[in-house]
Structure formats: structure tokens, C-alpha cells
């Protein structure tokens, strides 16, 4: 049988892959958004694994709401991205420094 720790370590690995993706792809905002999605899926796998092994459905309900919020986030994020491309002509992160942060 597959133990709970296998699932948790798998989602930890996926989480770290998403994190490295944010480190590595520092110029392309689209891939940054996709790395955030990957991190969210890793977290959701954690929730579902705990929900299954502890026999409590609340974890699955929480994943449902996380998926809802993530879908809304992607829709608004891509809208902002389109707006950025329309105004700047690029979606390179290094060019979008008009806030001087």
C-alpha cells in the first residue's frame, strides 16, 4: 500500500519544482503564472491525501474552493498580462520596472 508520507513527499517535490521554475524563468510572466498553478496543485494534493487518510471530507471541500480561486486568479492575471502587452509591447519582467521597485 502507498503510505501518506509518499503522497506528502511527492507534493513537496512538485512544490519545489514550481519554486525552481519561478527562480529560473524570471523573464516570462506566463511561465511564472504556470509555476504558481503547479504549486497550487501540489498543495491540493496534500489536502486530498490528508482527507483520504484521515477520513474527513473537509479537505476535499477546501480543494474545491482553492480551484475556484485559482481559476479566478488566472483569468485576472491573464487579463493584466494582455493589458501589459498592449501598453508596453512586451511581457518581459525586466522591462516592466516603471514602479522603480
Amino acid at each position: 500500500m502507498v503510505s501518506l508520507s509518499d503522497y506528502l513527499i511527492l507534493s513537496a517535490i512538485i512544490f519545489c519544482i514550481g519554486l525552481v521554475g519561478i527562480f529560473v524563468n524570471r523573464t516570462n510572466i506566463i511561465i511564472l503564472l504556470m509555476c504558481v498553478e503547479l504549486i497550487l496543485v501540489a498543495v491540493n494534493t496534500n489536502f486530498i491525501a490528508f482527507s483520504y487518510f484521515l477520513g474527513n471530507e473537509a479537505g476535499q471541500i477546501f480543494v474545491f474552493f482553492i480551484l475556484t480561486v485559482a481559476a479566478a486568479e488566472v483569468a485576472i492575471g491573464l487579463a493584466i498580462l494582455t493589458l501589459l502587452f498592449r501598453n508596453k509591447g512586451t511581457i518581459n519582467v525586466d522591462v516592466t520596472n516603471s514602479l522603480k521597485g
Binding site: L19, V20, F23, V24, T27
Partner: peptide, 17 residues
């Protein structure tokens, strides 16, 4: 433009991961 600085932060990211 997107290919520039692709691997600049790779060692640090790998160490952290």
C-alpha cells in the same frame, strides 16, 4: 528576449529546492 538570463539563477534555485 525571453531566452536571456535563463540559467542565471539556476544554481541558487537548485540549492534552495
Amino acid at each position: 528576449t525571453l531566452r536571456a538570463k535563463f540559467t542565471g539563477y539556476l544554481p541558487l534555485g537548485l540549492i534552495v529546492a
